[in-house]
Design a protein around this nucleic acid. Structure first.
Length: 429
RNA sequence: GGAGAGAUGGCCGAGUGGUCGAAGGCGCUUGCCUGCUAAGCAAGUGUAGGAUUUUCCUACCGUGGGUUCAAAUCCCACUCUCUCCGCCA
């Protein structure tokens, strides 16, 4: 394909000041922008030159064709040398262009999505903004245990054997905990398919390098990814990757939008550089289960869709009767591909605070450009779709929230009402 | 892993060196026609970039190289799909 979409280079070219301001808010380097513009300028110059050289070559070729047709070998000989010269020059020029195009592409791959204009400007997570709260944290009449104490004590969670098997940041679940994990997955998927109209998907857990690039996970986050050495496949860090890349290189019909997909998959993350964080328990793992929501929408409706997607994720916690709050991430805390993000945080007694359990983002056309996912509009023209994703929810952390919030003095755990049908009717475990 | 066949526009499918951005069909859009629907008739209908922008130029026929003045077409490598064999939950 001749075209490299990525972040629209034309947009950077035509609205340099606005783009710079938006990227400055998320601490992106201004020198990099200037450098891209410089190289882009050069690449376009070469392209124009190449364009006219090719035009000349093509017209000579046509003349040769005419002479050949007229069996005029003298006429051919006369211009053949000139044709060879041009062909040679073109070859040199082409080599130069492909080199420069590679540079531009590499640099564009490194630019994050533009934040939505209304995202609060801030330097890091301390400047995120709380939007709303739901439910009241429970008042315990005994000292509640953290899941990393309660779990092993009850024979439900096993961190020691997990580290024997796999090293740090893994957990083995037994018996009712394992069943509860399964129950949560089923409950979440059933809710999203039957009530919210999502289509259930079981995607591959290994994807190609290109799929990772298309969804914005590479080249930036190579050190965060698990990959297979021989085949260069990547273990998905989230089902967002296969779901958002599902329609790569496709042209969708406007009337089939919005597309809504829900998938349960394990997620694999190296968690490089998070050594001091969440070291106890199963909050931060190299492998965790997640039910993921992904939407494809028209550009006009994506921010509205973000609101509904977030509410659909929140509903899981409402059914489970777990207190939570919703915060909006400030520009400095926004993920690489996101233009606007709401995090849902569940109440955890062990942290005595709210802890992230879902992150819902509007990715706008950022992944759609990389993956070349377009739709045909009613006026027959093409445009990129917008993609959105959100956890609905992180299953492991939901399990933790249930263990901690529903624990009783005797160490038993009440099963939330909506999960009982999935737990063989058990009321406590 | 072995052997063979294939990859062309929204879809099907023709095309083995120059007049091919690509026949034909389907679909779609517009107009005509017809109580409605269907059928019929006519025209239009890929993407992207560029220019002196009612026109012209360039690139794109799985991907990447090569041969040639000229490649969908010839050569090489790779990827994927299908069929058969092997292996296997």
């Amino acid at each position: 394909m001749e075209v490299v979409n990525l972040l629209d280079i034309k947009l950077i070219r035509n609205e340099t000041d606005r783009i710079k301001e938006l990227l400055r808010r998320r601490k992106f380097s201004m020198e990099k922008i200037d450098r891209i513009l410089e190289i882009d300028e050069e690449s376009r110059k070469i392209k124009t030159e190449l364009n006219s050289m090719r035009a000349e070559r093509n017209s000579i070729s046509k003349e040769i064709a005419k002479y050949k047709a007229a069996k005029d070998e003298n006429g051919v000989a006369e211009i053949l040398n000139h044709a060879k010269e041009i062909a040679n020059e073109i070859k040199i020029k082409e080599a130069k262009l492909s080199e420069i195009k590679k540079d531009v592409e590499d640099m564009l791959l490194d630019i994050p999505n533009l934040p939505y204009e209304k995202v609060p400007v801030g330097k890091d997570e301390t400047e995120n903004v709380e939007i709303r709260r739901w439910g009241e944290p429970r008042k315990f009449d005994f000292e509640p245990k953290a899941h990393w104490e309660l779990g092993p004590k009850r024979g439900l969670l096993d961190f020691e054997r997990a580290s024997k098997l796999s090293g740090s940041r893994f957990t083995v679940l037994y018996k009712d905990a394992a069943q509860l994990e399964r129950a949560l997955i089923s409950f979440m998927i059933d809710l999203h398919t039957s009530k919210h109209g999502y289509t259930e998907v079981m995607p591959p857990h290994l994807v190609t390098r290109q799929t990772m690039i298309n969804t914005g996970k590479l080249p930036k986050f190579e050190e965060e990814s698990y990959s297979t050495k021989i085949d260069d496949l990547f273990l998905i860090p989230t089902a967002e990757v296969p779901l958002s890349a599902l329609h790569t290189d496709e042209i969708l019909k406007e009337k089939e939008l919005p597309l809504k997909y829900v998938a349960y998959t394990p997620c694999y993350r190296r968690e490089a550089g998070s050594y001091g964080k969440d070291v106890r328990g199963m909050i931060r793992q190299h492998q965790f289960d997640k039910v993921e929501l992904v939407m494809y929408t028209t550009p006009e409706s994506s921010y509205e869709a973000l609101e509904s997607l977030t509410h659909e994720a929140e509903e899981v916690l409402q059914y489970l009767e777990l207190p939570y709050r919703v915060i909006e991430l400030c520009t400095g805390d926004l993920g690489f591909v996101a233009s606007r993000t709401y995090d849902i945080e569940v109440w955890l007694p062990s942290y005595n605070f709210y802890k992230e359990i879902s992150s819902c983002s509007n990715v706008t056309d950022y992944q759609a450009r990389r993956a070349n996912i377009r739709y045909r509009k009613s006026d027959n023209t093409l445009d990129f779709v917008h993609t959105l994703n959100g956890s609905g929810l992180a299953v492991g952390r939901t399990l933790v929230a249930i263990l901690e919030n529903y624990q009783k003095k005797n160490g038993k755990i009440e099963v939330p009402k909506v999960l009982r049908p999935y737990m063989g009717g058990k009321e406590e475990i």
